[in-house]
């Protein structure tokens, strides 16, 4: 390789590596701000902002969804298996909202620890299967337990 070309190759390498390191360090410093939501454990540990809105993410606990009498308010528990936060929400729920589903709720915590949500988003997993296969898998799992 001609020296001139080698010099350009080195420059290109340095450019890419330099930008990579700079951006990598910046992202490392911003780590917490890039995360979309806080987990119930982070809320329990006091890492989430108090009084100001933030996003809370977790699984809807089975059997915890209830309607508050004579209102459109719905309440459910969000868990990350270690800690649980109760969420109150009035409004339209996404089609994927159901018990056991991953949820991201936007809102804030009051003094009693109740999270009042202004928006509820559903997070789905990366599994794509026909219902029959999921049924078969569930059955197989149930038989394995017995």
């Amino acid at each position: 390789m001609k020296p001139k070309r080698r010099q350009r190759l080195v420059l290109v390498g340095l450019l890419v590596a330099g930008v990579g390191i700079a951006v990598g360090l910046a992202l490392l410093a911003l780590q917490e701000n890039i995360n979309l939501f806080f987990s119930p454990s982070q809320v329990a540990a006091g890492e989430a902002p108090v009084g100001s809105p933030f996003r809370l993410g977790g699984m809807v606990v089975d059997g915890s969804v209830s309607r508050v009498d004579q209102s459109l308010e719905i309440r459910f528990d969000l868990t990350d298996t270690a800690n649980t936060v109760t969420v109150a929400y009035t409004g339209i729920l996404p089609d994927l909202f159901r018990e056991g589903q991953g949820i991201v709720a936007q809102g804030s915590v009051n003094d009693n620890g109740l999270f009042t949500a202004t928006q509820v988003l559903a997070k789905h997993d990366e599994t794509y299967m026909p219902p029959e296969v999921i049924d078969a898998l569930d059955k197989a799992k149930a038989m394995g337990v017995q």
């Binding site: 979309l36 990366e126 599994t127």
Partner: peptide, 23 residues
Amino acid sequence: WWNTLHQGPTITKFDQPSIAISM
């Protein structure tokens, strides 16, 4: 690296793809 609303990779992850073959 971060928690996101977007789900993780289905096909390009190292273990078996979690999608039915017919899909």
